[in-house]
């Protein structure tokens, strides 16, 4: 087993503070074992890009971090809070754990019966019980930040895919998570709309947000990622800086995968 815990160097934004720690994470669907012992540490402010072949468990790992999937066993800690899935976890601890992460879905999953603004306000108002007027201001600011300040009263169906995904990012940010999780956020988009979403994500990375991004956008990985993780068969096969992993992959499996997609 490779120890990744001290493999990254830190810039000003990245202290040595460990934001995410995954230990011995397993997930089984019936007979199918999808995650076979994931170990991963992510420092505060790091941007990690996850690549790997279809079915390797990338989505499942993100969903476990957001506890949309209950792992079979393993321990996940985020910002000091941890859940040990070898024991049974209470609904309450899952709920408070979930607040630590914001999830951005491949197909946006916006609430179609609510406007962009209402989508963003929903969490703070309903879940956190915050004051509506204050939340409205915050939500407006967030939508402006992701570049759709002029469309806050539009319904999702009236927005392009790129705009919808940016609302999705704003919706997750509104809950003020410690970590943002992105599952192929641009893969459902027309090529000309990919850039606007990646730009928002890059800005977020520059602000020091800790991010785990599953994506096949190699340019994003090169420009924004601190490290790239290659997953295959339910384990982390290789982890390294983008330029390293793309030019000198250590593992044969990584090399094969990179040859295939480039």
């Amino acid at each position: 087993m490779v120890d990744f815990s001290c493999s990254s160097d830190f810039n000003l934004l990245q202290g040595s503070f460990t934001m995410i720690s995954i230990k011995g994470l397993y997930k089984q669907f019936g007979q199918l074992e999808v995650l076979k012992g994931i170990n991963l540490e992510v420092k505060k402010g790091q941007v990690i890009v996850v690549i790997g072949p279809s079915g390797s468990g990338k989505t499942t790992m993100l969903r476990c971090l957001n506890v949309l999937e209950t792992p079979t066993k393993g321990v996940i800690s985020i910002e000091g809070q941890s859940l040990d899935f070898s024991k049974s976890v209470s609904k309450k601890s899952v709920a408070s754990f979930r607040r630590l992460t914001g999830m951005v879905f491949q197909n946006y999953n916006l609430f179609p019966h609510k406007t962009a603004l209402e989508n963003v306000m929903e969490g703070p108002v309903i879940v956190k019980g915050e004051d509506k007027t204050a939340v409205r201001k915050k939500a407006q600011a967030l939508l402006e930040k992701v570049g759709i300040g002029d469309k806050i009263d539009y319904y999702p169906a009236q927005l392009s895919g790129g705009q919808q995904q940016r609302v999705g990012i704003a919706r997750a940010l509104a809950m003020e998570p410690e970590v943002m999780l992105f599952d192929e956020p641009t893969s459902a988009l027309d090529p000309e709309l990919v850039g606007e979403v990646l730009k928002v994500m890059k800005d977020l990375a520059l602000e020091g947000m800790t991010m785990i991004v599953v994506t096949h956008e190699m340019r994003f990985a090169r420009e924004a990622a601190d490290e790239v993780i290659f997953m295959d068969g339910g384990v982390v096969v290789e982890r390294n800086k983008p330029e390293e992993i793309f030019t000198h992959p250590k593992e044969e499996r990584t090399r094969k995968f990179l040859n295939m997609i480039q």
Binding site: K91, A95, T101, M103, N109, F111, H113, R171, A172
Partner: peptide, 27 residues
């Protein structure tokens, strides 16, 4: 109603009842 709607509700911290009332039943 697609499963993703429940999950989007859960992902912003909603409980089953909140997701049901605010997201699923209106649709």
């Amino acid at each position: 109603i697609p499963k993703g709607q429940w999950e989007a509700g859960y992902s912003i911290g909603m409980s089953y009842t909140q997701a049901l009332k605010r997201i699923i039943l209106p649709q």
